[in-house]
């Protein structure tokens, strides 16, 4: 019984690892600093960042529901 709850708690904590992804994706700049591929004339550097605002919100929501 005690063990079950500890394990469940541990498994829940693994979900938190998802929260690391936005850090890697946006703080490692060489990954997205370039102009290509462009989207409707908008350089990669810009649309990638806007995309990650949405993706990070989605990831946070996933963690929220998974650990609720």
């Amino acid at each position: 019984m005690e063990n079950g709850s500890v394990e469940r708690h541990g498994a829940r904590r693994l979900w938190y690892l998802l929260l690391l992804v936005p850090f890697i994706a946006t703080l490692w700049v060489p990954f997205y600093a370039g102009p290509d591929p462009k989207l409707g004339g908008i350089p990669f550097f810009y649309w990638y960042q806007f995309l990650w605002v949405i993706l990070s919100a989605v990831l946070t929501a996933v963690v929220y529901f998974a650990t609720k």
């Binding site: 690391l20 703080l27 810009y46 960042q49 990650w52 605002v53 990070s56 919100a57 946070t60 929220y64």
Partner: peptide, 17 residues
């Protein structure tokens, strides 16, 4: 000046925790 974007992206996982 666009550092404001990764800044306000990574701040929320921190807030969550």
């Amino acid at each position: 000046g666009f550092f404001a974007m990764p800044y306000t992206i990574v701040v929320y996982p921190l807030v969550f925790l």
